[in-house]
Design a protein around this nucleic acid. Structure first.
Length: 611
DNA sequence: CCCCCCCC
């Protein structure tokens, strides 16, 4: 256990040694108009005690949990020294580790003297050879604690080495101190002098707002360097000053923004802080940008969206196969009219997915010539299975000059455009809003599908093992939209009670009860007209004729329907008759198995097992 | 100082 003797003075004079150790003599909560409590510490390095020490608010809980009782020896893992007005200097502890609890140390180490914050002596830089002097100092230093805590001095040589290292890490360019460039990851609200060099990886449109607090305009952009990303927002005057100057993908020197804690609710960037431009903000273009990372995409194939759990953000790239006209909707909450345009994008995975653009971006989008769109951070929802939207934090790039885009273009022009594409949209219309939700029949039971207030939709591959012949079809009202069963009046007339009319004819409607099996279980399902006709390979009217004229052939049609496999889309809901409840499963669609697609589905299910 | 990301 060592205190970094004399280190406080060096830090106050601008040194930035790594991981200095201190003793916390005292801590007190300061009164603040701010909603956040702040702690002020009395910190000792064994030689001096300094009182202008603040704790970054995120460390408050260590004190609130009594993890750092007075007299604890700590290592300052991250810290800053800021100059305030009047040349006052304050040390801010950003991150720390307790090396020895005050409950063990119990007393003040060494015999430190109080530093007067208003007259801090300049520490003369000590050359490496000077360490002997330091050791002399150490000899003078008398630890009062004589238990097992041996105290020694900080080693100046080592400290200076650390200092050089840490400056190297911060890309200190030889020359004036002003040429120092900070990394984005090092920015905190506790610094007041910094400059970053960063690439613009997202630039929003200019938006306006109007609320009870006022109105104005703003934009934001994301900045990237090799240490991380940060969001930057500009309001009003700063919009006028910097919006046109900041270009997507270009690199700038940026300084003097206001740092604040990021509201994670609205930011998908990996940074605890974000920054706001202010009247002091300086932004200068930087032309030498080759060393900085460029906007990077982590593209998800459109077929892989199935495995993404909405709502989430994804990077996607696709060819705009369909570009719908721009139209407008009224926002449910805002009650404002918003322009929108739906695109349908496709890729080599054979999927077509809807991508919605909003506002100005929707208005200005030109869908001519099947453009390629890449979206960083598109919002994925489960509407119609899967849908994408370009949200405020997304960046849309049209016809990017990237390898992925060229490969995609090549595929599209050499036959991809003529391909048939699958969609996540559930067949049969009424199952919207769900993903395909693949289930086995055993899962349907074990997961209690259909027990909720709303019906559950799921997709299953199954084989027809039994078809009920009785009551599989009925005579229905011939009116186009009426499927009501008619009464055969026996005189060649059929009466529909719903339409209150008699007709000389009727149509045939089907209600086919089938038992369908997969490798786990079986399930009784009800198939109405369209799916039943498909499974029997015959139109209901023809089948009705057959039933009346040639029962053997009719039986054969039902027989031939057995042991065929389909991809079933089901609607499951528990229904209760006479106090008896049972799961009713309606087949919304029965599609022939596309073995390639189904194989891919199985592959992705296997992938989801994470084996 | 925004922070809605909309609608079907």
């Amino acid at each position: 256990m060592e205190l970094s003797t004399g280190i406080i003075l060096e830090i106050l004079n601008g040194a930035t040694p790594e991981k200095p150790t201190f003793q916390v003599i005292n801590a007190k909560k300061i009164e603040s108009s701010n909603t956040v409590d702040r702690y002020r510490l009395l910190l000792s390095d064994g030689e001096y005690v300094y009182s202008h020490v603040m704790l970054a608010a995120q460390l408050n809980k260590m004190w609130e949990n009594n993890e750092v009782p007075n007299m604890s020896v700590i290592e300052a893992t991250r810290y800053l020294c800021n100059k305030l007005q009047g040349d006052k200097r304050v040390i801010i502890l950003l991150d720390l580790k307790v090396l020895a609890s005050g409950s063990d140390v119990k007393c003040k180490l060494g015999n430190p003297t109080q530093l007067n914050p208003n007259s801090i002596p300049t520490s003369t830089p000590k050359p490496a050879m000077d360490s002997g002097i330091n050791e002399q100092k150490a000899a003078v230093f008398k630890p009062q604690n004589n238990n097992n805590t041996a105290l020694s001095t900080g080693n100046t040589t080592v400290q200076q080495t650390h200092q050089v290292n840490s400056l190297e890490k911060k890309s200190l360019t030889p020359g004036t101190p002003n040429s120092r460039v900070h990394s984005i990851a090092s920015l905190t609200p506790y610094q007041n002098r910094w400059r970053i060099r960063a690439r613009v990886t997202m630039k929003s449109n200019i938006r306006t707002w109007s609320n009870s607090k006022g109105e104005g305009k703003l934009f934001n952009c994301n900045l990237l360097d090799d240490s991380g990303e940060i969001r930057m927002t500009g309001f009003k005057e700063q919009v006028d000053k910097f919006y046109d100057m900041l270009e997507l993908n270009k690199v700038y020197y940026i300084s003097r923004c206001t740092l604040k804690t990021a509201n994670k609710q609205y930011s998908n960037l990996n940074n605890d802080y974000e920054m706001t431009m202010n009247p002091e903000t300086v932004i200068e273009p930087c032309n030498d940008d080759s060393d900085l990372p460029v906007i990077s995409f982590d593209f998800v194939k459109l077929s892989e969206l199935e495995q993404c759990k909405p709502p989430t953000s994804v990077d996607v790239i696709g060819v705009v196969k369909v570009c719908n006209d721009v139209n407008s909707v009224v926002g449910r909450q805002s009650q404002k009219e918003i322009l929108k345009r739906d695109l349908q994008i496709v890729d080599q995975s054979g999927l077509a997915v809807s991508l919605t653009l909003w506002g100005d971006e929707a208005n200005k989008f030109d869908g001519q010539g099947f453009p390629i769109v890449a979206v960083k951070g598109a919002r994925l929802s489960d509407f119609n299975g899967r849908s994408l939207s370009v949200s405020g934090s997304s960046q849309l790039i049209v016809n990017p000059d990237t390898k992925e885009a060229h490969v995609l273009r090549g595929w599209f022009e050499s036959g991809g455009r003529d391909q048939n594409f699958s969609s996540y949209q559930s067949e049969g219309g009424s199952g919207g809003g769900q993903s395909s939700n693949w289930k086995t029949f055993l899962q349907v039971k074990s997961e209690n599908l259909g027990q909720g207030e709303k019906a559950d939709y799921y997709t299953a591959k199954g084989t027809v093992v039994f078809v009920k012949k009785d009551n599989c079809m009925y005579q229905a009202c011939p009116t186009a939209d009426c499927n009501k069963k008619v009464v055969d009046l026996g005189n060649g007339q059929y009466r529909c009670e719903k339409c209150c009319r008699e007709f000389p004819n009727h149509k045939w409607r089907m209600i086919l009860s089938c038992n369908v099996a997969d490798h786990t279980d079986n399930q009784w399902i009800t198939c109405f007209q369209d799916s039943a006709e498909g499974m029997l390979g015959m139109k209901a009217d023809e089948l009705g004729q057959l039933r009346e004229t040639d029962e053997m052939r009719f039986d054969q049609v039902l027989q031939d329907a057995l042991f065929k496999s389909y991809i079933f889309r089901m609607r499951a809901k528990v229904e209760t008759y006479n106090d008896e409840s049972r799961l009713k499963t309606v087949c919304v669609a029965a599609n022939n198995v596309d073995w390639k697609e189904y194989g891919n589905q199985l592959i992705s299910q296997i992938a989801q097992l994470g084996i």
